[in-house]
Amino acid sequence: MKAIHCALALACGLAASTASAQTSVQVYGLVDSGLAHITNADAEGNGVTKVPSLTGSLPSRIGFRGTEDLGNGLQAFFVLEGGISMDSGASGQGGRVFGRAANVGLKGAWGTLTVGRQVNMTFISSMKSDVMGPQLFSISSIDLYIPNARSDNAIGYLGNFNGFMVGATYSVGRDGVATGGPAATNCPGEVPGNSQACRQYTALLGYESKAWGLNASVDRMNGNTGAGGGLTGSGNTDIRTTVNGHLMLGDVKIGAGAMDRETDAATGLSESLLVFIGASKPFGAITLDAQFARRNARRSDDDVTLYVARLSYALSKRTAIYASVGRMDNDGASAVALDAGGTVAPGMAQNGVMAGLRHSF
């Protein structure tokens, strides 16, 4: 009997060893925190000093990714990635454990097929053209959906054929969380008899090379009862159409883009155009980034303009310190805060400074 037990233990050990040899799993992450001061944070014009919650120069996260080689160029993969609020240690993306990604898929020469919570084509479209990325002062402050362009209950495809990119996502319930930040809009969908409820599709077409890139995307989401953003009926829609591009001039990167938005909400129809242009220049271990952005509201004076610059110093390949300055000008009744997720009174301008430390692993 003891021999049988030993044999079973050995067999189980060999099976576990074989499985681990076939599957490669990586633990990775990024931690980024600092201190920011922003003026005019309330109607009385008082400033505020804070440790940012949503992001620093980049959002903090921890993730697990794994791949298995299935042969003939085919791989299976999974990604589980959660956001971290560095001021409190809470989970990001509306309190989700794996709010940044929770998906499984297959990939090969034909492209990548993904099922689960995933970034959609609006997020992918802006990645290479937005030199500031989702930092505290950025175009993310003007449209908080940009860094949170993820879809629950989704199936997605992305292919790259000699630089030509094509992709799409389709969600039957775009957002299953009700509270906890800009990523939570309470539209879980999957309603019997109403396939339009909380449905979302995004699509991308573009070309990418080392020297330049250009892409266009469309993002259409439906609402449902109780959903955020005024999309309280399944017939209400929010549509974003983007064109983004970047160009390398030596080691200088120039990125620009435009996003047209049309929201048919319960409160009525609103339309706007967001445009941005920025540049990034390395000087050895130092990198200087700067960006200008403006959102024009159609048939309204509620426009907003952003100016931002950032200086980063790489202490190593994984660790950097940075400092950033920014200004947000609000016109009319516009009340867009300079710091993502912050506050400002309508029509007020805000100035801000921030400094922090970032480490990836």
Rank of each mutant, 00 (worst) to 15 (best):
S280Q: 15
N103P: 00
P182K: 11
D152L: 04
G352H: 01
V275T: 08
T122A: 11
S140K: 02
Y313H: 10
Q291G: 06
S140T: 09
M127N: 14
E68G: 06
N46E: 15
K281I: 15
R318S: 11
F98K: 00
L205D: 04
P346A: 06
G45C: 04
S33V: 08
R150T: 04
D303P: 07
D152I: 00
A290V: 14
M328R: 03
T55M: 04
G229K: 05
N40E: 12
H37C: 13
Y145C: 02
G189R: 00
A323K: 10
P134T: 02
A345Q: 05
V304S: 04
S312K: 06
L249F: 15
R310E: 12
A7T: 14
T225L: 15
D302E: 04
Q75I: 03
L311E: 08
D219V: 08
M221A: 09
L136F: 06
G34H: 08
A168P: 10
N153P: 14
G235F: 04
G213L: 02
T49P: 08
I254R: 03
N162T: 06
L247R: 06
V166Q: 01
K317C: 12
R298M: 12
T241H: 12
G176R: 01
Q350T: 04
M354H: 12
Q196R: 14
G228D: 03
D143K: 02
